[in-house]
Amino acid sequence: AQVHVDGVTYDFDNPEEAEKFAREMAKRKGGTVEVKNDQWHVE
C-alpha cells in the first residue's frame, strides 16, 4: 500500500500500517486523508 504525503510516496507491505501512518500524518498536519485507487493521500 502506498501513502502520499506532500509529494513523497511511502511504501508499506501492510495496508493496516499504511492506514495508521496516513491517519497519524494527517493528524500532525491538521489535514485530511483520502483513499484513491487503494492509495492513501494525506492533504
Rank of each mutant, 00 (worst) to 15 (best):
E24V: 04
N37C: 12
G30Q: 06
A18N: 00
R23N: 12
A1Q: 11
K27I: 14
P15S: 12
Q2L: 08
V5E: 02
E19L: 07
A22F: 02
K20L: 11
T9L: 08
D38S: 11
G31W: 14
D6M: 07
V35Q: 12
D11A: 12
Q39K: 09
A26P: 00
T32E: 06
W40M: 06
D6S: 07
W40E: 03
E17F: 03
F21A: 02
K27Y: 13
V33A: 10
V5R: 02
D11L: 14
A22V: 02
E19M: 08
K36P: 03
A1Y: 15
N37I: 07
K27A: 14
Q2N: 04
D13M: 09
Q39T: 11
G31V: 09
E19I: 06
R28A: 14
A18W: 01
D6R: 03
E34G: 10
P15I: 08
H4P: 00
V35R: 13
N14I: 07
H4Y: 12
F12I: 01
E43G: 10
K20E: 12
F21P: 00
F21H: 02
V3G: 00
Q39E: 10
H41V: 13
A22P: 00
M25T: 11
K27H: 13
K29Q: 12
P15M: 11
Q2P: 02
G30Y: 05
E19H: 05
H41A: 05
A18H: 00
E17L: 09
T32H: 12
D6K: 04
R28G: 08
E16K: 10
V35T: 07
A1P: 12
E16G: 08
V8A: 09
T32S: 09
T9H: 05
R23G: 05
R23S: 07
E19N: 02
Y10T: 01
V42R: 03
V8P: 00
E16W: 13
H4L: 12
N14M: 05
V3M: 01
N14G: 07
P15L: 08
H41Q: 07
G31A: 09
D38F: 11
T9E: 04
K29E: 10
Q39L: 07
A18K: 00
G31Q: 06
K36L: 12
H4N: 07
A22Y: 03
A26G: 03
V5H: 06
A26T: 02
A18P: 00
H4E: 06
A26W: 02
E43P: 05
H41T: 12
Q2W: 08
T9V: 13
F21N: 01
Y10P: 00
K20N: 11
R28Q: 14
G30V: 03
H41W: 14
F21R: 01
V35D: 03
A1G: 08
V3A: 03
E17A: 10
H4Q: 08
G7P: 01
T32V: 11
K27T: 11
N14D: 13
A26M: 03
R23M: 11
K29P: 07
W40S: 03
T32W: 15
A26R: 03
A1D: 05
A1W: 15
K36R: 14
H41P: 03
M25V: 13
V42L: 04
V5T: 03
N14E: 08
N14Q: 07
Y10W: 08
K29S: 13
E34L: 14
V42F: 05
N37R: 06
A1V: 12
Y10E: 01
G30H: 08
G7D: 05
N14V: 07
V3F: 01
E16P: 02
F12Q: 00
